[in-house]
Design a protein around this nucleic acid. Structure first.
Lengths: 247, 247
DNA sequence: CGTTGGGTTGATCGACCTCAATAAAAGTGG
DNA sequence: CCACTTTTATTGAGGTCGATCAACCCAACG
């Protein structure tokens, strides 16, 4: 695990040769959440032969918008920011990838967005074309991928409601509640919500400015709905927060 | 086709018995755009056995948010509004379905949104469970569905940029340009953009009020960037509009 | 006809943005 | 380990874009 913090690692590092990968997978903490779940021994083996276990330093780029897509990733640790840039510099973050999330669901040949590491990130990397070929051989894997893509689509539509029809306060609360739900599947935590991204990132995800995000968080803290802690928040008044996030 | 305008048709009508359905399909105008494309004879036949050709009057409901999903649809004519409602009545339209579009890509057992007809609509309807079973037998069909879902996801992410990081004017222009692109694949038109939805619908899609949508359209018309015509707009200054929509 | 549902236009208001200053935290190099 | 810089976060004052409220027009239709 020391390799994760290798200060020179601006490019992916192979943590272990493919020959040992089965061992890696059997220890994988996000197996049940990831694309690998619900695959039988045969399928998992085929998938595993394609996998390279890689790590990225915080701030490293996984891939960039409009570039040819060479690989797809299954995130096993850390968190990743996914965003689109407008020509004039305005930025919209389209999602944050957490452990268990899959990048490249669409299998398209060009990246629809950029992705970079918010913290040290570990991932399983698969060559895109080989992974795509495998999908044609393993319908079970394809079905799993489709289920994950459908879930992503559903989250994207929820985000549309948040962006289009909610107030600044509601946006921030909905964001926290949504993130809390996702973290809880990973680390089981209930009231502590780690925020590995900056206020600016949250703003660019919610269609707000940094200042407004900061103001809303302090307002919620002043009203004792939550406490701001180092690298995150602790939720205090869940009923009130759930009412604000509604549905 | 008279059945499409049957005034009593609040529930789906079968346009033809299943036995004739192959004939229906061979005449289908949106075949190349829809889920049916790129399927071989065997697959198309299996799909066809499940299909019921149905029609809805304008304003009819195809299905409602949170209800158990009983069927999936392939739209063959007309247009459909897809939306989510907040408990307090605020509405976010998550998309407009045009001919060739598929409703139910996610195959989930509950509808993530409501759908109702903006105009008279014709569609191929498939029982959800049977369609899902067919996906397990025909990987080719699943792959096609996944490709369509990925495309939807990409559109949803583009919409996030529009909702989160664009001005009212840019939103309206981006909406028109996006719709133009979609219509052009169906009817080949280039500068005429039919708008079967109300200004309110456009507002609820873009996160704006009716008044703002109306004001932006008149502004664009005043500046000779477009002309407002009955049931749509005609785009005049494409370079200017493309510049406003950027990327 | 009157009624109803869309659409447009104007006047006013307020939620959020912008600009600016400061504080706190995290690196960085000696 | 401590000065120094850089990045991130907070807070305040003032401005603006789009919302709200209200009036009116127009076409469709019973």
């Amino acid at each position: 695990m020391a390799a994760l913090r290798d200060p020179g690692a601006l490019t992916p590092l192979t943590l272990c040769p493919n020959g040992h990968a089965i061992d890696e997978c059997s220890h994988c903490k996000v197996r049940a959440l990831s694309v690998c779940s619900a695959l039988d021994g045969d399928e998992l083996e085929a998938l595993d032969r394609l996998a390279r276990h890689v790590a990225f330093d915080a701030r490293a780029t996984l891939f960039e918008q409009d570039e040819a897509s060479e690989a797809v990733f299954n995130i096993t640790g850390g968190s990743v920011r996914l965003y689109k840039l407008l020509p004039d510099g305005r930025r919209q973050i389209v999602g944050f990838a957490l452990p268990g999330d899959f990048l490249g669901l669409s299998m398209s040949d060009r990246n629809a967005f950029s992705a970079d590491a918010l913290s040290a990130v570990s991932a399983c990397q698969f060559p895109r074309q080989l992974f795509s070929d495998l999908l044609d051989e393993k319908p079970h894997l394809l079905r799993r991928l489709h289920t994950m893509a459908s879930h992503e689509l559903s989250l994207a539509q929820d985000q549309m409601v948040i962006l289009g029809r909610r107030t600044a306060e509601e946006k921030v609360v909905a964001f926290l509640m949504g993130l809390r739900k996702r973290w809880s599947r990973i680390d089981g935590s209930t009231v502590h919500v780690p925020l590995p991204m900056t206020r600016q990132d949250i703003g660019d995800f919610l269609g707000l400015t940094v200042e407004t995000v900061s103001r809303m968080l302090t307002k919620l803290a002043r009203e004792k709905a939550l406490v701001i802690v180092p690298d995150g928040v602790r939720l205090l008044d869940l009923p009130r927060l759930e009412a604000l996030a509604e549905c």
